[in-house]
Design a protein around this nucleic acid. Structure first.
Lengths: 129, 129
DNA sequence: TAGGATTTCTGACGTCTGTAGTAGGATGCG
DNA sequence: CGCATCCTACTACAGACGTCAGAAATCCTA
């Protein structure tokens, strides 16, 4: 379970830790918009499960409340998700890109960034070789 | 439930129908590589559930075997997945692209195709306006 | 038409996710 | 000190998924 798979809600919880730093359950729960915010104990359950998955841990205690901190990086978790996602398409990117663009999710800037990243990567690989 | 969410195995089953056309359970099951092929009844259960979700239906009967055909398009199902996936990232594409490129899943050709698609779309929107 | 082969139909079970209630211990304030 | 409040720890449950076995119905063939 080196890189556990995280569900959507689990990702949202990890996001709080990644963005805000070590937090208590109450803080995590309140970071959800008032609308559709899960109950305190719901968040608690997910945090406990993330702890079991070693995605986070108890860092210290303030008063009688535990403070939790992330044990896996946002990058690692996201990569895991991307890989998982790609497997739905047999690894072929073309359909994915097409949908992204048609849905308007992919802006010209995104593509430009991608190009730059590709060039940088190509240059780096050349240098390494 | 107009556009049901499909799991990975469900997508693999739909893929057979999309690629090969209307098929019987046996045909679907055998289209899985010999290694890791699920039991006949496992495939059957998933097909029945896909039927409940209205993702496919019984088209006809050959002998005593039912022939199933897709009721939703590959495009629609894929779009559903892409949307679902994006929600994990709050809709922000940048991290997704970065991971795709770093993992080598996104080739220069993919990006070039994306650019062309973007240009076409921009032109079309302009014309429509 | 009888028997083997194939399919269907049903029921079942473990895991994961999301959801949350409850009981009890700890904290802090008046 | 005593009580309201907060947090923890535990328990529970429903729905989706993946897994499949067993029994009954149906079909084909010798």
């Amino acid at each position: 379970m080196r890189l556990p798979k995280l569900s959507k809600l689990e990702m949202q919880i990890m996001d709080v830790l990644w963005s805000t730093g070590p937090s208590a359950i109450r803080e995590i729960q309140e970071s959800f918009g008032a609308k559709g915010r899960p109950a305190y104990t719901t968040v608690q359950t997910m945090v406990y499960r993330l702890e079991a998955k070693k995605a986070l841990r108890r860092a210290k205690k303030i008063g009688n409340a535990h403070i939790f901190e992330a044990m896996i990086s946002r990058e690692a978790a996201q990569r895991r998700l991307v890989d998982e996602f790609l497997s739905f398409f047999g690894g072929r990117m073309q359909p994915v890109m097409a949908h992204l663009i048609e849905a308007g999710n992919l802006s010209p800037k995104d593509v430009a960034d991608a190009e730059r990243l590709l060039r940088d990567l190509a240059a780096k690989r050349k240098k390494d070789a």
